[in-house]
Nucleic acid binder design. Sequence first.
DNA 1: TGCCACATACCGACTGGTTAGTCTGTGAGG
DNA 2: CCTCACAGACTAACCAGTCGGTATGTGGCA
Lengths: 202, 202
Amino acid sequence: MTSPANQRQDDAPTQPVPQRLLAAATRLFADRGYDRTSVQEIVEAAGVTKGALYHYFGSKDDLLHEIYGRVLRLQQERLDAFASSDAPVERRLRDAAADVVVTTIDNLDDASIFFRSMHQLSEDKQKQVRSERRRYHERFRALIEEGQQAGVFSTATPADLVVDYHFGSVHHLSTWYRPGGRMTPQEVADHLADLLLRALRP
Amino acid sequence: MTSPANQRQDDAPTQPVPQRLLAAATRLFADRGYDRTSVQEIVEAAGVTKGALYHYFGSKDDLLHEIYGRVLRLQQERLDAFASSDAPVERRLRDAAADVVVTTIDNLDDASIFFRSMHQLSEDKQKQVRSERRRYHERFRALIEEGQQAGVFSTATPADLVVDYHFGSVHHLSTWYRPGGRMTPQEVADHLADLLLRALRP
DNA sequence: TGCCACATACCGACTGGTTAGTCTGTGAGG
DNA sequence: CCTCACAGACTAACCAGTCGGTATGTGGCA
């Protein structure tokens, strides 16, 4: 071979291999589903080979787990920030509720993977993801309960159910929201947060 | 072989083979996912062989399509019944919203398949399912718009979004609801319908 | 400065296992 | 004797993960 082969064509700053693999896997998993995506397709999309993938990741399902971890960390971080501000509780809830919508839309691929591919993870990893998710859920619920105790939110519905109600709609975004549709992410977020707050009016 | 082999052990009225196959497939698809379920497992669970399955169904994905058809027909039928009653619109919406929750919980397996396995269907079948689903969605939306025009529902949020908000939570049921939990299906349905109606208060 | 030792970061052919769908057969009923 | 309703062995394809190999870099030492 006389060319520098398949490293790079140009000198633009290429992302490191692990990130490229993760990005390619995310696209493909969201597109055709975890089981329908072969490891070969992932490495081809990332411009490397199986050797590279198994150098950085223990298994295909490790890749999926890493995607879950990334989403979970991001959302938890943002929720914590909003929840612990010193604004009044209805403001904190509204901001958190709207933010998770925007963040979800900004990472729609992650979202469709998240809710479709849970059961492709190994039992251990599933348990881990579920427990991190529970932590998130509880933080959100605490916010609602705080408002209920303060008398600014209705107590007609148990806080737990309200959380599931809202996250149902967030979850659902990846089914119907298409970038470039007639609403911006922020508009959708405002409407959904509104619906939540309106449902909670005493 | 001297025994009547593997047809039936007793003379209880056994369901016909196609239904048994569909039932077995539903359980298994909900449990481990479409791609993780082999045709061999389905036929074993139904007590027949591949010959029988391919006698009645053209392919594995035909089986899935039939499951989708069954759910869609059932829900559309029920929605039509509730929507066309002559009760006031807020009553019709409430009943329809609560009913879809109860029906979904009664068929939780169908629900988890529905929202997880869409993209395992062939392109044609997916298109067909989407169009039937759209019909359902539109009927529901019409109900909300009717109430908005009559002034009994707030117009702050576009009806479309409200529908997605509610169906997000229905969709989500298969993630968190467990039969035998501390709420009955009817209680959950009442709460979720309440949340919807409260969010729509002018 | 030159050379060796070792590690990191991959490459890609190969293996063992699995799977959807096919096809030839067969018994029962009309 | 013909058709329906299956049985079950077989095939062709695919795929996750393995493994032996290679290229490049780096530190130590003479």
